[in-house]
Amino acid sequence: MKKTKVLWLSAIACNGNTHSFLNYPFMEQFLEDFEFIYHPVIDSKYSLEDIVSKEITCDILLIEGAISKEFKRADVSVVKIIEKYSKIVQKIVTVGTCATFGGIFRESGYENTSGLHFDQDKQLKEFQYLRDKTISVSGCPVHPEVLVNTLYAIKKSITLKLDNFLRPKEFYAYTVHNGCTRNEYFEYKVDNHRFGELEGCMFYDHGCQAPFTHGSCNKILWNEVNSKTRAGLSCMGCTEPTFPKRNLFSTKKNMAIPENLPVGVGKRVYLTLAGITKAFKIDRLEKKLIDD
């Protein structure tokens, strides 16, 4: 089978997606199936100068980093590079939250910095004609398996169902909360979380956004071993258009009621259930998980 040619283009980025990608466990197989015409770290047949000055045959354009026409690579505006390659490729993938929504570097001070199709959750007019070609794999960084398997889906001409932000539903229909080992503390409203412990849920006080963040972090584990919420760190909502929100380690509450509730769950439903579960004391969840 012919290798699929991929251009990995970094715009205003930290290269976090590049290095997250390098954590993909079956790299050998991947490199047999794909070839980078350019990659920030992996050697390629062409130099960046070749990429910007010529038009190299390519099947998939990957964009990492926030986009502004002011930002240049090898003296050429990234917007110009995107315009050129978007015409010849079969698909475009915005890799990570910066390329999708603007992310952290939306604030980097370049003129009109945003994602390719979205400025946070606002749909952009520029590049609208490319929407049908684009798949977004958001996340700061993207999960390597989410990226690589999306690339394989493109290679195999599989039509992926996408959400409103062009993200494959197979990965982003879940919430990060799905599969968290701290779920029971959430379900039964045991709200006395302290950092540094195996027990407790960070939703109530420490800003965990997992119940309203789309992603597979607790379904497809990170580095195949863990997730932030399992480790005891709040989900920072890094796959969403709103990333990064402010005051990330504390839960926004109105009269002690969390402002952001599990996605799709009405306030009345949530409060009713919370009121019921909170009335019960569940000893197993009140004590240490691994006790004497």
Binding site: G16, H19, S20, N23, C140, P141, F195, G196, E197, L198, C217, W222, N223, V225, N226, S227, K228, T229, R230, A231, G232, L233, M236, C238, F249
Partner: peptide, 22 residues
């Protein structure tokens, strides 16, 4: 790193006062 921090890259597991993990 992920055993402690949940993921790599881009964990924020070290917080003022220690680390979030047990």
């Amino acid at each position: 790193i992920a055993v402690f921090g949940g993921q790599y890259p881009h964990t924020s597991y070290a917080i003022v006062g220690g680390v979030v993990c047990e």
